[in-house]
Nucleic acid binder design. Structure first.
Length: 994
DNA sequence: ACACCGTAC
C-alpha cells in the first residue's frame, strides 16, 4: 500500500499545526524568538510537505504547494521594498483582529529603539501568523467541501437505492413477485460465484490468515446453500438475498474486492469496513441459520450459539480497532489460547476500556469521586471493578457496584466471576432481594441500587466498602438519586472511600457539578452506526403511522436482514396494533414474506414473552411491539430497524391530591437516542422517528423528569428519617423533589404515628422502617399485632405489592378472565380479601402452575408474592409481632387495613360516584374491582389513579365509625355522623386538626 | 368501561 491515507495526512498536519500555534501563541514567542522562529519554519515545512503529498486537496489550499520558506523570503522582499503596504491580503475578521492586536503590541514598543533586524523578525512573525490563519481557514473550507461532497454522494446513493425500490415496486405490480425474486436470486448466485472465483485467483499461492480462510469457506458455504435452495425449493418467498449489494452494482464489487485486500491493512476508511462488516454479518447469520436448521434443535444449540457470538465479537473489534499489528497479535493470542478462560482473558483486552486501564487507576488514585462516561459495550461495568481489585483496593474493603436491575446485577457478576476464574458467590458475588450470593471472601459485589440503600440502614458509613461504583447513573432511578445524596455525605467523613459514578449520557457535567466538580473520565464506546430518519411532517396518528412504517420496511427491505422493533405506550395499544397488523398482512397474503408479530410488555405471561427471543424463521421477519421495557430492561437480538413514535406512558404523583396519573407524554432526547441505539447492537441499524427533526431539536426535553420528582415520597422520607436525616427540605439532592411532596409525606407519617410532632422517629416508625413496603402497608402490618390477624395481613400486604399483575386479562379472552376472577369474590368481599383468597387457594393447590393458568392468574407474580410474603414473615418475627391467624374474623382484617389506610376513605354519593373524605374529590371505583357494582357506602382504597377517570383501586368496605375509633386524631365524629342523612356533607366541617 | 417501567436487609 502507499503512504498514509489523505485523512491521516491531514490529521497529522493539523495536529502539528495546532502544536505550532500553541507554541507561538502568547508572549513566549517574543521572549524566545531565537528559539521559536527556526522551529516554526521547520515544522511548517513538514506540514507543507505532508499537504503536498495529499495532492488532490493541496490544490485548494492557497499557496499549499509552494514552499513556505520560499514564499516567506519572497514576501519579505516585497515587504522590505514597500513596508507600508499592509492591505494586499484579505483576511477574515478574526485575522484582521489578530493583526490589529499584534500591531498594537508592536506599537507599545518604542519604535526608535527597535533595530532593523528586530523589525524584520517581527514582520516574519506577523506573516507567519497570517499565513497560519489563512491555512486554518483553508482547512476549514476544505472540510466543508468534503462534507458537501460526501453529502452529495449520500444523496446519490439514496437516489440509486430509491430507484431500485421503484424497480421492486414495479416488479411487484407487473411481474409476479416470485419470478422477480427468483431472478434476483440467480443474479446474486452468479455474483457470489464470481466473487469466490476472483478471490481464489487472487489469493492463489498466498498464505492466508485464519480469518481470511474462514471467510472464504463461509462464502463457499453460502454459495452451496443458496444454490441448493434455488434448485430444490420452489418457494422463493421463504428465502432470498438482501438488497444491500444490488444498489451499487459493479462499482460495489470493486469496492468489496478492494476491501477484501485491504482488510487487515487499511482500517481507516470506515465506510468500506461497514459495508464489509454488514455483508459478513449477514453471511454469518445465514450460515448459522442453515446449519442450525439441519442440526438437532434441542441440544448443542448453546455451543453453536457461543460460536456465533464469539465471531460477532470478533468482527466488532475489527470495526473498532483495526490496524495490522493489533489484529494479528490478537489472532495469534486467540489461537494460542486453549481454554475458554484464556479466551475470556484475551477478550478482556479487546474492550474499549482496556487501553485506559492505567490512566483510570491513576485518576481513581488522585480523586475521591470520579465520573465515568462510556457507551454501552465499553466494558466499564465488568472491567473497572476488576482493575481496582487488581490494583489492591479490595485489601481495605469490598468494591460495590450498583445496578438498577436485578438481572443486570446477576449476569454481570456471573460474567466477572468467569473472567476471574472464581466461583460465583466467592470472590465475586451479587446481592439482590431474596438472594444474597456473597460470602466473607467476596471482594467484588454487584448489587441493585435499592439493595445498597437497604444496606445503608444497617451500616450508615458503609465501612465494609472501599469503593462504590454507581452504574447506569443516567437512568436516575429513585434509588440512585438517594444514593447520590448519601454517598456524597459519607465521602466527606470517609476520605478513604472512592466513589465512581458511571453514566452513558453526555450530560456528565451535571454529575460533575453535583459532586463538587469531580473530574470526568471518558471512555469511547463501541457501536455500530445507526441511520436516523425523521418524518417530513408531524403525524397525527402515531399508532397508524407506526404500523404503516413497519409494513413499509417489511416490504421494501430484504427479508431476513433484520427485525423491527416498535415502541408503543402500553398493553392495550400493543394489542390494538397487533390486530391491525394481522389484518393488513393477512390481506396481502403470500404477496409479502411472512411477518411474525411479537408483543412484549412486563405483564405479559412469561411463556408468551419467550416468543420474542426465539429466532426468526428463515425468510420471515419479526416485528416486536414493545413498551418501554425494550428501552433498557431487555435486549432483543437481531433488531435492525427501530420505529419510535416518540411517546411514553409515565407515572406522575400529585402530592396535593395524593393522586397518581398515568400520562402519555413525549419522550426525552436521551430516551430517543437510547431507543435508536437499540437498532445498532449487532450491526448497522436504522431508526425511524415518527416526528420531525424540528420536534426533536426544539420540542423534546433533554432528559426525562427524574423519578424522585414525580413519585410519592412517603417511603423515602421514612427511610431517610431512620438514617438520622431529619431535615429533608435541605438535604442535598441532585434534583430536589418538590417540597410539597416532602411535606405531604411527613404529614402522612405523622398521621400514621411513625413520626412524633418534632419529626422524630417513633417506636412504631422504627418497626415500620424495617419493612420494604409503603408506610401505609407497613403500618397495616404493625397494627395487625393488635387485631391478631398478622398471618392474613402479611399475605394481603404481599399481594398488594404485586397487585397490578395478579390477574391476566388478554383482549381476546376478557370474558373468561373476568368470570374466573369472580370466583375469588364469593361472599361479596372486598378486593383485599379477594387477593387473600387468591393466595390461599393457590397455596392449597401446593402452588400449582396449572391452577394459575386455569384461573387467568400470573404465575410469575404469584411466585414473587410468595417470596415477598416469606420475607415479610421473617421481618414480622424480628420486630416481635406475633404471627397469628384469625381467618374467621373478617372485620378484624378490615379494621387492620383501616389502621393503615384511614386517610384513603371515600363515601358513596347519590349518583353512584364516590367522594374522598380528606381531600374532597370525586372518584370512581375501578371497573376491575369486585365492588364496582356493589357500591358500599363507605370504603377505603389502596390507591387513587387517574387514567381516563379518577379511579380508586383495591377497595374494601368499612364502617364509618371505625375511622373515628382507629384514627381519632384524624377524624372527628362529625366527619362521619351524617351517615344516615342523604345530605351531602359540607367540606368545611370535615377538615380536622392534625 | 381498564393498567408504563423498575426496584426494596
Amino acid at each position: 500500500m502507499d503512504v498514509p491515507s489523505s485523512n491521516e495526512t491531514r490529521a497529522f498536519a493539523e495536529e502539528i499545526f495546532q502544536k505550532v500555534e500553541h507554541k507561538s501563541s502568547g508572549s513566549n514567542l517574543y521572549r524566545h524568538q531565537e528559539e521559536a522562529a527556526p522551529m516554526l519554519t521547520r515544522k511548517q515545512r513538514i506540514t507543507c510537505t505532508l499537504l503536498e503529498a495529499d495532492d488532490d486537496d493541496a490544490k485548494d489550499v492557497p499557496g499549499g504547494s509552494v514552499s513556505v520558506v520560499d514564499k516567506d523570503v519572497k514576501r519579505f522582499r516585497k515587504r522590505s521594498e514597500n513596508p507600508d503596504d499592509d492591505d494586499d491580503d484579505e483576511g477574515s475578521g478574526s485575522l484582521k483582529q489578530e493583526r490589529r492586536v499584534k500591531q498594537k503590541y508592536s506599537h507599545d514598543k518604542p519604535d526608535d529603539s527597535e533595530s532593523e533586524e528586530e523589525r524584520f523578525r517581527d514582520q516574519i512573525e506577523r506573516e507567519d501568523l497570517e499565513r497560519r490563519l489563512r491555512e486554518k481557514d483553508a482547512s476549514r473550507i476544505r472540510k466543508l467541501t468534503e462534507q458537501k461532497l460526501s453529502k452529495r454522494d449520500e444523496k446519490e446513493a439514496m437516489r440509486r437505492a430509491n430507484a431500485l425500490k421503484d424497480d421492486e415496486i414495479r416488479a411487484l405490480r407487473n411481474v409476479s413477485r416470485q419470478e422477480y425474486l427468483k431472478k434476483r436470486e440467480q443474479k446474486k448466485l452468479e455474483e457470489i460465484k464470481d466473487d469466490i472465483e476472483d478471490e481464489e485467483y487472487l489469493f492463489e499461492g498466498v498464505k492466508l490468515t485464519e480469518a481470511k480462510q474462514r471467510e472464504l469457506r463461509y462464502k463457499k458455504q453460502v454459495y452451496e446453500v443458496v444454490k441448493k435452495r434455488s434448485q430444490v425449493d420452489d418457494n422463493v418467498n421463504e428465502y432470498h438475498m438482501p438488497d444491500g449489494y444490488d444498489e451499487e452494482g459493479g462499482v460495489n464489487q470493486e469496492k468489496r474486492f478492494a476491501v477484501a485486500l485491504e482488510r487487515y491493512i487499511d482500517s481507516k476508511d470506515g465506510d468500506k469496513m461497514n459495508l464489509f462488516a454488514e455483508q459478513e454479518a449477514w453471511e454469518d447469520h445465514q450460515i448459522n441459520k442453515a446449519t442450525l436448521k439441519f442440526g438437532s434443535k434441542n441440544k448443542k444449540q448453546s455451543d453453536d450459539y457461543n460460536f456465533v457470538f464469539e465471531d460477532q465479537i470478533e468482527f466488532i473489534q475489527e470495526q473498532v480497532m483495526g490496524g495490522v499489528d493489533v489484529d494479528e497479535e490478537e489472532e495469534r493470542e486467540r489461537s494460542i489460547a486453549k481454554s475458554a478462560h484464556e479466551k475470556l482473558l484475551a477478550d478482556r483486552k479487546t474492550l474499549p476500556v482496556y487501553p485506559y486501564r492505567e490512566s483510570l487507576l491513576k485518576a481513581v488514585e488522585d480523586h475521591q469521586v470520579l465520573i465515568i462516561v462510556g457507551e454501552t459495550g465499553s466494558g466499564k461495568t465488568t472491567q473497572i471493578p476488576q482493575y481496582l481489585h487488581e490494583a489492591g483496593y479490595t485489601k481495605r474493603g469490598m468494591i460495590g457496584c450498583t445496578q438498577p436491575r436485578r438481572v443486570a446485577a446477576m449476569s454481570v457478576a456471573a460474567r466477572v466471576s468467569q473472567e476471574m476464574n472464581v466461583k460465583l458467590g466467592h470472590e465475586v458475588g451479587y446481592a439482590i432481594r431474596f438472594e444474597d450470593c456473597t460470602c466473607e471472601k467476596t471482594v467484588i459485589k454487584y448489587l441493585t441500587d435499592g439493595m445498597l440503600l437497604r444496606e445503608f440502614l444497617g451500616e450508615p458509613d458503609l465501612k465494609s466498602y472501599s469503593v462504590v461504583m454507581v452504574d447506569e447513573a443516567h437512568e436516575r432511578t429513585l434509588s440512585t438519586d438517594l444514593l447520590f445524596g448519601l454517598l456524597k455525605q459519607i465521602a466527606r467523613f470517609r476520605p478513604d472511600i472512592k466513589l465512581l459514578i458511571s453514566s452513558a449520557t453526555l450530560d456528565a457535567e451535571k454529575f460533575s457539578d453535583y459532586f463538587d466538580c469531580a473530574p470526568i473520565f471518558r471512555i469511547p464506546g463501541r457501536r455500530f452506526p445507526v441511520e436516523i430518519n425523521y418524518t417530513k411532517v408531524p403525524e397525527a396518528d402515531y399508532l397508524d403511522a407506526a404500523i404503516v412504517t413497519a409494513l413499509q420496511i417489511h416490504v421494501n427491505e430484504p427479508a431476513g436482514d433484520g427485525d423491527i422493533l416498535v415502541f408503543l405506550t402500553g398493553q392495550e395499544e400493543i394489542e390494538t396494533a397487533q390486530e391491525i397488523l394481522k389484518q393488513r398482512t393477512h390481506g396481502l397474503g403470500s404477496k409479502i414474506p411472512e411477518l411474525v408479530i411479537c408483543p412484549i410488555y412486563a405483564n405479559l405471561p412469561t411463556e408468551l414473552q419467550a416468543k420474542v427471543f426465539e429466532a426468526t424463521p428463515q425468510g420471515a421477519r419479526k416485528v416486536v411491539l414493545a413498551t418501554n421495557i425494550a428501552e433498557t430492561s431487555l435486549t432483543i437480538d437481531g433488531i435492525k430497524y427501530v420505529i419510535d413514535p416518540g411517546f411514553v406512558k409515565m407515572n406522575f404523583y400529585d402530592p396535593r391530591t395524593g393522586m397518581e396519573s398515568l400520562k402519555i407524554i413525549p419522550i426525552s432526547k436521551a430516551s430517543a437516542n437510547q431507543r435508536a441505539g437499540r437498532s445498532g447492537r449487532t450491526g448497522p441499524g436504522k431508526c425511524f422517528r415518527l416526528y420531525t427533526a424540528y420536534t426533536y431539536y426544539n420540542e423534546l426535553d433533554d432528559n426525562s423528569v427524574p423519578e424522585i420528582q414525580r413519585t410519592n415520597l412517603a417511603n423515602v422520607v421514612l427511610s431517610l428519617t431512620s438514617l438520622g436525616i431529619d431535615d429533608l427540605l435541605t438535604f442535598d439532592f441532585m434534583d430536589p423533589p418538590p417540597s410539597e411532596a416532602v411535606l405531604k409525606a411527613l404529614e402522612l407519617l405523622f398521621a400514621l404515628g411513625a413520626l412524633n410532632k418534632y419529626g422524630e422517629l417513633t417506636k412504631v416508625g422504627r418497626k415500620m422502617a424495617e419493612f420494604p413496603l409503603d408506610p401505609m402497608l407497613s403500618k397495616m402490618i404493625v397494627a395487625s399485632d393488635k387485631y391478631k390477624c398478622s398471618d392474613e395481613i402479611i399475605t394481603i400486604a404481599a399481594m398488594l405489592s404485586i397487585e397490578n399483575s395478579v390477574f391476566y386479562r388478554p383482549k381476546n379472552k376478557q370474558v373468561h378472565a373476568d368470570n374466573a376472577r369472580l370466583n375469588f369474590y364469593t361472599g361479596n368481599v372486598g378486593d383485599h380479601v379477594a387477593l387473600l383468597n387468591v393466595y390461599n387457594l393457590w397455596k392449597e393447590t401446593n402452588f400449582s402452575a396449572q391452577w394459575c393458568y386455569d384461573n387467568y392468574i400470573q404465575l410469575r407474580s404469584m411466585k414473587q408474592g410468595r417470596d415477598i410474603r416469606d420475607q415479610l414473615k421473617g421481618i414480622v418475627e424480628r420486630v416481635e409481632i406475633e404471627l397469628v391467624s384469625n381467618s374467621g374474623d373478617l372485620d378484624a382484617i378490615y379494621k387492620c387495613i383501616t389502621s393503615g389506610y384511614f386517610s384513603h376513605s371515600a363515601k358513596l354519593q347519590k349518583n353512584g360516584c364516590y367522594r374522598s373524605v380528606k381531600h374532597p374529590q370525586t372518584v370512581y371505583i375501578h371497573p376491575s374491582s369486585g365492588l364496582c357494582e356493589a357500591l358500599p357506602r363507605w370504603v377505603v382504597y389502596h390507591e387513587l389513579v387517574l387514567t381516563t377517570k379518577e379511579y380508586v383501586r383495591q377497595v374494601s368496605e368499612i364502617k364509618p365509625e371505625w375511622l373515628v375509633e382507629i384514627a381519632p386524631h384524624y377524624y372527628e365524629l362529625k366527619d362521619v355522623e351524617d351517615l344516615g342523612s342523604k345530605k351531602l356533607p359540607r367540606g368545611k366541617g370535615r377538615a380536622s386538626k392534625l
